[in-house]
């Protein structure tokens, strides 16, 4: 009988700095498994964001560049345009992608850049310590929204997958979650699919992953999973928002 469980080759042996219960670790693994499955480790370049995943390059074993806050899609554009034979992915959080980097992601998606974006939506700023994100839910408490997000003053939470799916340019736009094992399996398929579209040179591919942040939500990991299931998923509906023909 062969091994049923092993560390993906595309992951390094470094222990992550992520908090207990954080789902970054799961998503890292899914990305690494997709890279292994497709046999593209040697031609993959990842782009780390600014946010909790800023050190992602320590956890993957492939070429990596580190972008400034929000600029990963522009950087990925630069790499992919000059080296279309490389497989390029950005790994970004919600502050990075949906706030400061909104311009870069919209335009990269609209140009149909042939790279893959993994978007971690946990409805809060993690690394800077729990400030309000564009994805923070109405009423959800954050250090810069101590009484809960007032949507009358700060607008409604941004649904990035929905928004990007509105672009006329073809793309693969999907929202997944990693709150339950079944969701993890589906997310893995979606991530692999996203890389496959890139390999085929087909389109921009975008996988939003609804995640948790127990530390900054002030919850136990289990409570965080439940809160995400009950509060985030009804607003951030899972599924494919756009698939290329």
């Amino acid at each position: 009988m062969g091994k049923t469980f092993t560390t993906p080759k595309a992951l390094s042996k470094t222990h992550t700095h992520y908090c207990p219960g954080c789902t970054h670790g799961i998503v890292h693994r899914l990305v690494a498994e997709a890279i292994d499955d497709l046999g593209i480790q040697g031609k993959t370049v990842g782009i780390a964001p600014v946010g909790c995943a800023v050190l992602a390059y320590n956890y993957f074993d492939c070429d990596f560049q580190e972008a400034a806050h929000g600029r990963a899609p522009a950087m990925a554009t630069g790499i992919k345009r000059v080296r279309p034979d490389l497989m390029v992915f950005t790994y970004q959080g919600d502050g990075d992608l949906a706030s400061i980097g909104m311009g870069e992601i919209i335009h990269a998606a609209n140009r149909g850049e042939k790279f893959t974006t993994i978007f971690i939506n946990n409805a809060i700023y993690g690394m800077t310590g729990g400030q309000m994100a564009p994805t923070t839910m109405g009423g959800q408490r954050a250090t810069t929204a101590p009484a809960g997000r007032d949507t009358a003053a700060t607008g409604m939470p941004l649904r990035m997958a929905n928004l990007l799916a509105e672009l006329v340019t073809p793309g693969y736009i999907t929202r997944q979650a990693v709150l339950k094992p079944q969701q993890v399996n589906k997310a893995k398929k979606a991530i692999k699919q996203a890389f496959q579209y890139q390999m085929e040179g087909k389109c921009f591919s975008f996988v939003e992953v609804v995640s948790t942040c127990p530390t900054n939500w002030g919850m136990t990991p289990l409570d965080a999973l439940k809160w995400a299931e009950d509060t985030l998923l009804p607003y951030y509906e899972l599924g494919d928002y756009k698939v290329p023909e």
Binding site: Q65, R71, A74, T77, G78, I79, L86, E104
Partner: peptide
């Protein structure tokens, strides 16, 4: 120009 700066960075880094 903000984005262009990082396109340059990405391409140069590659």
């Amino acid at each position: 120009e903000v984005a262009v700066g990082y396109m340059i960075f990405g391409a140069a880094g590659a």
